[in-house]
Nucleic acid binder design. Structure first.
Lengths: 164, 164
DNA sequence: CCTAGATTGTTCAAATCTAAACTTTCCTGA
DNA sequence: TCAGGAAAGTTTAGATTTGAACAATCTAGG
């Protein structure tokens, strides 16, 4: 019908490239993210003695000077609330973040960077951004912009089709 | 003057906005992979009672009818060997994969799908591919091809700049 | 032959992560 | 006012993951 197969003549040996484009795209995205994540994790660990999930929490909090509720943090980081409980515990013990009461809601808590956490994070963030500029250094501006735009389309498509 | 370098960099103002672009690209990639991963994990769990890491192992093995050594599997999945030991244990107990001796190397072991593992996986793989086609359904062929190509550039850039 | 170094897989501790059950607190509508 | 349900965090059990140390085995020089 609408979709015309362009590889009718494809030999059976090329199972990989014969797969649906959507699957191939997914495997590429996964590979890129795994590669870069692993390298960033190694560098954060050896240079700043911080884990990648801990860095991710700090990075989200740094954008919100007034702090975030745990639930909002879990939404933005796309991890479960239960996961964050322990992660935040660790960062509180390290003195990098603090828990505060939320006026008017005794269930909730506000989590924000401490002064020390802000200082530490600013050094990490600078290195983190420089590492990314290095690792993705071969991509020209046009490609970067195109990728960002197309990944936004991926996100939109996902939200249109994923239930809940 | 100490600030001559500023003038030299001035014509290359692209560098500064380029650095920001790379960070933005990274955050987009991360978000897309996290979103899709979470959805695939949910569906694999509820429909086939299999975890995403287990599925990933089976998917790699399915491509290699003769099986793979554990080290090679860990390279392709980009996880540590220690991780795979337990993961393969689980799949062996479930009867989906089998360990074999490697002739000529008593250290190594060959891991391959069992007949039952092959059958089970083929059903999962079909659903998995259909889910991706659904979730990424808004992207036209041109965008898919463009993304795949540009993500290959990301991979190449990474390998040029990541040490080891 | 023999030994230093590399490779393969396991084990361990600590951290991360999910999913689900649970407690406490808030909110809404009848 | 007051159930009933929704929301915020915690806890728990189980699985995943890393990083490092380790034993067994292979390989290559000398």
């Amino acid at each position: 019908m609408a979709r015309v197969s362009t590889d009718i003549e494809a030999p059976l040996s090329k199972v990989r490239s014969g797969a649906k484009l959507e699957l191939r795209l997914w495997l590429r995205m996964l590979a890129c993210v795994n590669l870069v994540s692993a390298e960033l994790r190694r560098r954060l660990r050896s240079r700043f003695d911080v884990t990648l999930p801990q860095f991710d929490v700090l990075a989200q909090l740094e954008r919100e000077p007034d702090g975030l509720k745990l639930v909002e943090l879990s939404r933005r980081l796309m991890v479960t609330k239960g996961n964050l409980t322990g992660l935040v515990d660790t960062l509180v013990e390290a003195g990098l973040v603090a828990r505060e009461a939320v006026p008017g809601d005794r269930r909730a808590q506000n989590i924000r960077l401490t002064r020390g956490g802000t200082d530490q994070f600013s050094r990490m963030a600078a290195a983190h951004e420089a590492w990314l500029a290095e690792l993705l250094g071969e991509l020209d501006r046009k490609t970067l912009v195109s990728l960002i735009d197309e990944l936004d389309q991926v996100k939109r498509s996902f939200h249109l089709h994923a239930r809940r």
